[in-house]
Nucleic acid binder design. Sequence first.
DNA 1: TGAAATGTTGGGGCG
DNA 2: ACGCCCCAACATTTC
Length: 479
Amino acid sequence: MSKGLCWIRRDIRLHDHAALSHCADQNTQVYLAFIFDNDILDPLKKRAPGDRRVQFIVESLAEIQAQLKQYNATVIIRYGNPVDIIPTLVKDFEIDNVYFNRDYSPYAQKRDAAVTQTIIDMGKQVHTFKDCVIFEPTEVLNATQQPYKVFTPYSTAWKLKLESLLPLPTYPVRQDRFAPLPQEPHLDTEDKLLHFAGFTPEPLILKGGTRQGLKRLADFAQKMSNYDHDRDYPAIDGTSLLSVYLRHGCISVRDMVVTALSQHNIGAQKWLNELVWREFYQVIFYYFPQVNTQPFQQKFNSLVFPTSEEYLAKFKAGQTGFPIIDAAMRCLNQTGCMHNRLRMVTASFLTKILLVDWKRGERYFSWKLLDYELQSNNGGWQWSAGIGCDAAPYFRIFNPTTQSKTYDPDGKFIRQFCPELKDLNNKDIHNPIEANSLPLSFQLGRDYPFPIVDYKINRKKALDLYHSAANEEKNAKTI
DNA sequence: TGAAATGTTGGGGCG
DNA sequence: ACGCCCCAACATTTC
């Protein structure tokens, strides 16, 4: 009988889990470990001790702790640097083999390589698995073995490859292999876990854990056929809200793909596409890690955003005087969630109307989004800023008022998060400064801010800025 | 997974 | 009846 350590990271579940499934074979006793990584959490704790993501993680962990209780087992939970902690656990529990699922972000790759090296140096083995994606970055390449740089051909190749993979592999987990650990301190409730991690919780709209994730998935399957239409309307509950469950692995990506493939309609296809976008941006980040700080399109390297700190602050606070923008940002601040369309509208607005550096917006979202994932967030911001790979062209600028009228026609979403506007009529609520008749009790500038910029003027400024940056590069080349 | 500017067309008012 | 203008509606181009 050997001992296996399964290191859980962004895969907080006990079902359909590649590393855990392989670890829990009949000759192995399974030890589970989760580490609150101090490199990630220390700075986060300083900035936001009420970070909702820690709450989500804790809820997800508490759920599997409850499941493990029946085996007298527990997840071994530590706080610190995995490069120190994993070897310590290997020594303390006399582990023979370490198992974990691969993660493709630069930080994770570096960390995992370091951990792997220390384990190998101890004469033990490390086994890693594909789990959090259908295809790893290196798996879907074009005819010349290069990564795709345009989404559509990538998705075509991805879907073709998926066909050849069906039925999707499943990774069942034997429940009788967990090592009993009665001596291990039982961090088995949300309160104990939060206290251990050193965070003070903020309330969550989405409850963490596999049970909730699978329930949401089942609920979403009922309305998935309408997804292609309903997903565009923030006031309609038309999206899956599953990204955060996928992010932390409460459910597997295979759980989701199986659901998408279970229906043959446009809605299901569009939804599957979103999962492909996620993997597409992982490919881009994997092969072009410089996108972390630079535009994918090099011609925009010289693009310098004026970046008014005042505009940025008002954007963050939801006080720009553009109702749909303010409602979206307040929603993000209050819930940690933002509707996909509003992510595009707000990102376009910050970069192309407020002329604030896209990285500032990306960073703010990275702090606030429950479902924050480096590659997707970066890809989305670069797409919106018009500087990314297969991005919206720079001259495609969302008009917040037009978007608002189209996708929140009766102002329902705006009223939910900007209650001071609730008495404006359905036409005027989108742009109070051009209102025909405001309620007597309502005064612009007192109850709600005037627009902090002139849309038309700044749209023109943005076009000039982008245009000259793009041309500067071109001119430099010809010289 | 836009929007604005510009161009074209065609019906109706009117001399 | 005819030509002219206006302008809304739609199409195309441009950013």
